[in-house]
Design a protein around this nucleic acid. Structure first.
Lengths: 216, 216
DNA sequence: TTATAATCAGGTGTTTTTACGTGACTGTAT
DNA sequence: ATACAGTCACGTAAAAACACCTGATTATAA
């Protein structure tokens, strides 16, 4: 692999192989930009970074990956390689995800349906200024950061309960599976009803899916 | 745009612009293959086809698109342009979606996480043989086509009920909203429980989301 | 130390959901 | 005409879900 001293070096992490390889091809076509690393998940990316002699300047990280997702990956990377600029890449532009990735150390959040020209521009700006935010994301950012404290916090047990609750199991069965009293389970239920602002188990389950607290 | 007489001409439809353009770049790099059309949705694709003088040999269609989704698009295309080979492109490999797209006229179903080499091979084979199916899809195909008749059929009222059931409303409220007896509603519930093979309203709601009978 | 919050657990009673059986009324295909 | 599938409706009883209350324990902060 030939690289120029002047090149802006990029690493990619995305579980969709076709997109990953395509994007690499596209970026290699950009002026002065070179993809030096392609990973299929966060773990893959980290192990590649450990053995490489040539670190990238910018890493594009898909938010939804198996094995190690975007948030975990970004958190680890921002600690271990604070000089590398991290960019979140996602299909969705929901508030919570954006906040999550920014807090995890990303200096930008790009949607997968942007135009290649904007990506090119974004990479250049991130290299020059250290950040880039698309208009659509930007206009919400202040509001997002203000509401940051209103974020949803579930305890470990509440999260586990929520997962079990998104099934055909009864609360009794869940209590038994979690080795807790039915009444404790009932407490979790009430707490989550309030936090998610719902009035029934169905509402809770669907809201959990919407907020991506659980995946289908 | 320069094309060679020998080139295999490809059209693409995908709502994620970055993927669309990247994929085009990738495919253009394949030997003897040329992307001559890129559309962001089914409607866009159809209107481009109507005004073009140069029809593609193969069209890659994303299953999930806004405005006009993959299934509708494939159905229309296979009627209007029976000579063009249609290929479904999707992130998910769930049975129902595959069946849907094959029935809509696609001669192949490819996952977005395949390796570029396999895509290249697939395109060549589709041009030569008229079809291509990846191993993972292929091994299920016979089973899928057998179970085809077991497809899910909900009456209009059952569908409406299902939508209402995916909310915080009680069955009583749903009955009132649908101007039906609670007992009738109860009948819908039982029928859908059997059809979706679930044992509770939560299971029903989540399964409905999984099967994309309802959207969030 | 006291206060504060988080977690776990129990009690009581109501409402909702679920299971199962029955029958009437359509339309329509044989 | 008969048989069949689909829709709507009612009844009963048990199980599950929900609301609102209390108190014990533990950890952490003021």
């Amino acid at each position: 692999m030939e690289t120029n001293n002047q090149d802006l070096l990029i690493a990619l992490a995305d579980d969709q192989q076709l997109f990953l390889r395509s994007l690499a091809t596209l970026i290699d076509g950009f002026d002065g930009k070179k993809v030096i690393m392609e990973a299929l998940n966060g773990k893959d990316l980290l192990s590649q970074l450990e053995i490489t002699l040539l670190l990238p300047h910018i890493i594009l990280i898909d938010v939804n990956m198996p094995i190690m997702n975007g948030e975990e990956t970004a958190l680890l990377l921002s600690k271990k390689y604070p000089d590398i600029k991290l960019v979140a890449l996602s299909m969705k532009d929901d508030d919570r995800t954006i906040i999550k990735m920014i807090k995890a150390g990303c200096c930008s959040y790009l949607l997968k349906d942007i135009h290649p020209n904007e990506l090119d521009k974004a990479l250049t700006e991130i290299n020059n200024n250290g950040y880039y935010n698309s208009d659509t994301i930007n206009k919400n950012l202040r509001r997002l950061l203000c509401h940051d404290e209103a974020e949803l916090k579930l305890s470990a047990n509440e999260q586990l309960f929520l997962h079990h609750a998104c099934s055909d199991m009864t609360y009794k069965e869940i209590a038994s599976k979690m080795c807790l009293s039915e009444k404790t389970i009932d407490g979790y239920r009430e707490a989550i009803f309030v936090k998610l602002n719902v009035k029934s188990r169905v509402g809770m389950a669907l809201e959990a899916v919407r907020l991506q607290l659980i995946s289908l």
